[in-house]
Design a protein around this nucleic acid. Structure first.
Length: 594
RNA sequence: GGAGCAGUAGUUCAGCCGGCCUAGAACGCCGGCCUGUCACGUCGGAGGUCGCGGGUUCGAAUCCCGUCUGCUCCGCCA
């Protein structure tokens, strides 16, 4: 080794010892006669001193060293002269008296400083990712992420799970996200897909009898990016045989408890609260509600069922609903305008609002409302003076989207969110299917391998060959799924289900999804086949590991917990991927670019 | 595919409602001074095709159109 120990590990116990250290120059202070060089490595920092009177030759060289250069330093660790200790750093009582300093690799002036407290544009950060990652908070993030993986592996190991790797080059399947495709050289015109998740393989491992499986799995989805979505991301994926929902929830809660305790020293209250999908939508307008604050949605549909106000009336005529959110503050005209712009961006036509002042309901829409409607509404909302109400009247889906997002926006604006809290929530009783208006068919809300609620199997059989759209929607969307999501502070950090282990049920579900027998056999034949040979009841869950880490470390974007993330356009600014390839490569792959 | 925000010294920003802008500040950088600093101090200096292209105008960083890049959101994400 070039060094005796880590720079950041030198402390009082090293006093009087002669050490050899290697690392980066964090900063240099030239005092004319005495030179301070702060050294840094992954464990921390240490001040090194060089006095001109001791070694003039070395002093004259070293004072021109630049920050972030890599050096090898030898010297004596000594107690700092009294009065010059620095309590702000771990090694603040000691310093290294430099006897020898060798420049291993000089650094050019950096494009940006290595400092936690400075905001650098994302573009520069990603281009110079290796420098960005030198910043202490990202050193910590990557270290914590590594520890989390270790804790996770230990946890599953202790609980009888096998870590089993599943392939990256797999068959493309319909449904779900867009696949990343990989051309096959050996099979002209054919493609592999990268897995969106190890879903089918883990089910098949249950058929193999492994009973408990887990994997820290990289997943790939060719969809547009968001602050919490990258084209490749990591899941903590697991599956268990002979289980029910409660078993999966229990093991999930235990894992999270362990991670929070060991990484953050926080004890979680388990079991977590549960809320049904229906209740979540009705109260929060979201299937991943942030329950750290109130501002719940209040239903006013019945109050306005005979209203003459055209906006409400026409919404109701189209099977719409009317809901409202109340806040205990009167916003300025400008703030209201901003919120109106915000909801318009979500597809709202406008934003109806009103305020209560001196017992009066003042609102641009007040004159359209009947007295008893106003009275009933205010009483249901328990609206008092200096409170404000926002309305949405539309199809349920739109009302939830608009008020659900408005609620989050208002929560932020009014500072109602306690950022120090971690509120976990299970969302249960998801519908099995959702009607897709464009394609005119039902779609799996979770995925097509999710088991329907046993008591709803008859409904599936009933609508299987119905043509009537109303039936399909009304009954189809009321079939329950044995699916569950786990939500933390309004972010979906995991989801799973009890799967179908019976081939006939699986065939029925494919049928409802308009996947013909032929197509089902072609795309999922191997699964249907596997289900024939003693497939045990099974279920599982997958955590979005990047999201979980971002939440635990207090980052807004998962990019900050991924060493080499992609931009919103899916490019890697460090390496320049994706890029063109040679004609030779294309030819070998039998691919022509149009 | 759509909406919004941003792009000005190496960095972070100000300037932007047309004219002392011959574009400023801070940090960084370069040089000098300084023996105890740790956001060192101090004196001096260099550094910019205002993302790119076009238009309006006597005159554009500033107004208009297009375009590229980054970010946030909608659609999409079983």
């Amino acid at each position: 080794m070039l060094r005796d120990t880590y720079i950041g590990l030198v402390d009082d116990s090293f006093i009087g010892k002669h050490v050899k250290l290697a690392g980066w120059i964090d900063s240099i202070r030239d005092h004319g006669g005495v030179l301070f060089i702060d050294l840094r490595d992954k464990e921390g920092k240490l001040q090194a001193v060089l006095e001109e009177s001791e070694n003039k030759e070395l002093y004259d060289i070293a004072k021109h060293f630049k920050e972030e250069s890599v050096v090898l330093v030898e010297g004596l660790v000594r107690r700092r002269p009294s009065g010059t200790e620095n309590p702000k750093i771990k090694s603040g009582n000691v310093e290294l008296l430099i006897e020898r300093i060798e420049l291993l690799n000089a650094s050019e002036t950096l494009p940006f400083p290595i400092d936690d407290n400075i905001d650098i544009s994302e573009e520069l950060r990603l281009k110079y990712r290796y420098l960005d990652l030198r910043r202490p908070k990202f050193q910590k993030a990557i270290k914590t992420r590594s520890k989390a993986l270790k804790i996770t592996r230990d946890f599953f190991e202790e609980n009888g799970f096998y870590e089993i790797e599943t392939p990256f080059l797999i068959k493309s399947t319909p449904e779900g996200a867009r696949d990343f495709l990989v051309p096959s050289r050996l099979h002209p015109g054919k493609f592999y897909a990268l897995p969106q998740s190890p879903q089918l393989f883990k089910q098949i491992l249950m058929v193999s009898g492994f009973d408990r499986y887990f994997q820290i799995a990289r997943c790939f989805r060719d969809e547009d990016l968001r602050s919490d979505r990258q084209p490749e991301f990591t899941q903590i994926d697991f599956e268990m045989s002979f289980v029910e929902e409660s078993d999966i929830m229990e093991i999930s809660e235990k894992l999270l408890s362990k991670l929070f305790l060991e990484l953050l020293g926080i004890e979680l209250n388990i079991p977590f609260k549960k809320i049904t999908y229906k209740e979540a939508m009705e109260r929060y307008g979201s299937d991943k509600p942030d329950t750290r604050f109130g501002l719940e949605l209040v239903d006013l549909t019945d109050i306005f069922k005979n209203t003459n106000f055209n906006v409400f009336k026409s919404a109701l005529e189209q099977k719409g609903i009317i809901k409202a959110i109340k806040i205990n503050k009167i916003l300025s005209r400008k703030e209201i305008d901003n919120l109106t712009e915000y909801v318009k961006g979500l597809g709202a036509k406008g934003l109806a609002w009103g305020k209560v002042e001196n017992g009066e309901f003042n609102s641009p829409i007040a004159k359209f409302l009947a007295d008893q409607e106003v009275k009933a509404m205010l009483s249901r909302l328990d609206a008092k003076d200096n409170e404000m109400i926002f309305f949405s009247a539309d199809k349920p889906k739109n009302v939830y989207k608009i008020l659900g997002n408005l609620r989050l926006q208002l929560g932020k604006m009014l500072n109602l969110v306690d950022e120090s809290k971690f509120e976990f929530l299970w969302v249960v009783d998801f519908p099995m299917f959702e009607y897709n208006e464009e394609e005119g068919r039902l779609e799996a809300m979770h995925h097509p391998f999710t088991s329907p609620k046993t008591e709803d199997l008859d409904k599936i059989r009933y609508i299987i060959d119905k043509e009537n759209k109303e039936d399909i929607i009304n009954i189809g969307e009321n079939i329950g799924a044995r699916a569950y999501d786990i939500v933390l502070n309004g972010v979906e950090i995991g989801g799973g289900s009890i799967r179908i282990h019976n081939k006939d049920v699986q065939k029925l579900v494919f049928k409802i999804l308009n996947i013909s027998d032929e197509e089902a056999n072609m795309k999922f034949g191997f699964l249907l086949e596997a289900l024939k040979y003693g497939a045990p009841p099974h279920g599982g869950l997958a955590f979005g590991f990047d999201r979980l880490m971002a939440m635990m470390l207090g980052f807004d974007s998962i990019r900050d917990v991924i060493a080499f993330p992609k931009t919103q356009k899916g490019t890697c600014l460090l390496t320049g991927a994706p890029d063109i390839v040679s004609d030779k490569q294309l030819k070998e792959l039998h691919i022509k670019i149009t």
